[in-house]
Simulated scan of single mutants.
Amino acid sequence: MPVELTPSQALGLWHAVSLEQVRVDSRDLTLRQVAILLEIYLVPPPHTVRGLAAALGVSKPVITRALDTMGALGLVDRMRDEGDRRNVVIKRTVEGALYLEKLGDLIINQGRKL
């Protein structure tokens, strides 16, 4: 069943989720980094820098910079594609899955307060 929210309620939910995320998680991901992480975890693999850039409508260097940060945080991993060494395949990690699971729980909990 679809959830019906007014624009004000939707923004209020986003605000509440954002505030709580800042309070409970020191990693401070950008909106772009979260979008990339969601693309990696919600869309079936394989994921490449080229594919992520196309999906998000940004350049490959933008994706690479975001992946550098997320990789240092343990949220994603990168490996050379053995079939085509020019490609880098982006892999999911346990830490990334846990991050998004907690974010999903936070969204659910904040949504219940509406």
Rank of each mutant, 00 (worst) to 15 (best):
Q33A: 03
D105V: 02
K113R: 14
G83W: 02
P46N: 04
Q21E: 13
L38P: 00
L73E: 06
A35W: 01
Y99N: 01
A97M: 06
V22A: 11
L38I: 05
G111Y: 11
Y41F: 13
E101F: 08
A35V: 03
K60N: 08
L106N: 07
P61H: 05
D84R: 14
L29Y: 00
A35H: 03
H47K: 08
E4A: 11
E39Y: 00
M70A: 07
I63L: 07
I108E: 12
L100E: 07
L5A: 09
R92T: 12
V88Y: 00
I108Y: 06
A54E: 10
L103A: 06
R86G: 00
K102G: 04
Y99L: 04
N109F: 07
T48Q: 12
G51L: 09
E82N: 06
P2W: 02
K60M: 10
T64S: 15
P2K: 11
L5H: 10
N109K: 12
L52R: 03
M1A: 13
L75R: 06
L103V: 00
K91F: 02
V49W: 00
V62C: 08
P44V: 10
V76I: 13
L73H: 13
A97H: 06
T48H: 03
I107T: 05
E95K: 11
A72S: 15
V62M: 06
I107G: 07
T93I: 12
G96Q: 04
L100W: 14
L114R: 03
G96E: 04
G71A: 06
T30D: 03
P45Q: 07
L73C: 04
R32Y: 03
Q33C: 04
T30C: 01
L5C: 10
T6P: 08
L75I: 00
V94E: 12
T93M: 14
N109C: 09
G83I: 05
T93F: 11
D25F: 12
K102E: 13
A10L: 15
P46Y: 12
G12H: 05
V88N: 01
M79S: 10
D25A: 14
Y99H: 12
K113S: 13
A54S: 13
Q9D: 10
G12I: 08
L52C: 06
A16F: 04
K60A: 13
V24P: 00
L98Q: 10
Q33H: 03
M70H: 01
I108T: 12
L5Q: 12
R80D: 10
D84P: 03
P2L: 11
L31E: 04
V43Q: 10
T48F: 01
E101G: 09
P61K: 11
A35I: 02
L19W: 09
L31G: 01
V22N: 01
G51C: 05
G104Y: 10
M1I: 05
R27K: 08
L98E: 11
V22L: 15
G74L: 01
T48A: 05
V62W: 00
L37Y: 01
V94G: 03
